[in-house]
Computed example of a mutant assay.
Amino acid sequence: MAKKTCSQLNNIQQKQICEYYIKNISAKRQNISICISKNTATQNRYKNRGPKYPLIKKAINIWVGQVLATGLVLTDKLVKLKGHEFESLLGISEDELKFSNR
């Protein structure tokens, strides 16, 4: 029996999996297979640190799930605005938190 190996996914691979899952919500994890090319330098970057504020990340993830379930379209700007709203509710100063487009 072949030994299973684990590998870390880069940002583009993670995004492809998320997009596939959104389109195929009933797909099982073991059935998700995607074709991934490794042509650009950015695809080989593995800079995945844990979030500085995991509570905000969790709140945004829940909110995004709720919005997507209603069929509304999300934009980066809207997600950032909601992030700043959570930031304010949790008492985190604006200069402590930076939002990226990732």
Rank of each mutant, 00 (worst) to 15 (best):
Y20V: 01
D95E: 12
L55T: 06
K80L: 03
S26A: 07
K47H: 09
T5N: 13
K38W: 10
G65F: 03
L68K: 13
C35E: 11
Q16V: 00
K52T: 11
D76L: 02
K77T: 05
S93Q: 05
E85M: 08
L90K: 04
S37D: 07
Y21H: 09
Q13N: 06
L72R: 14
S7F: 08
P54Y: 02
I36W: 08
L68Y: 05
E19Q: 13
T40V: 04
R29P: 08
L55D: 07
K57H: 07
R45W: 06
S88F: 10
K57E: 15
N24K: 06
I12S: 12
M1H: 11
S37A: 04
N11M: 07
T75Y: 02
T40M: 06
D95T: 12
L9P: 04
S33P: 01
D76G: 07
M1K: 08
P54C: 06
Q16P: 00
N10Q: 07
A27Q: 09
L72Q: 15
R45P: 00
C18D: 10
Q8E: 13
Q30P: 02
K77E: 11
K52Q: 14
A2V: 03
C6H: 13
K58N: 07
A69M: 06
V79C: 03
N48G: 09
I22Y: 09
Q8Y: 09
Q43A: 11
I25W: 00
P54T: 02
K3A: 11
K47I: 08
Y21C: 08
V79I: 15
Q43C: 12
K77H: 06
E87M: 14
A41C: 02
N10S: 13
W63A: 01
K28L: 10
L78E: 10
V73H: 10
T40I: 04
A69K: 11
I34V: 15
K52D: 13
L81A: 07
L89P: 00
S100H: 09
I92T: 04
I32Q: 04
K4G: 02
L55W: 00
R45T: 06
C6W: 15
Q30A: 14
F86A: 04
N10V: 02
L74K: 06
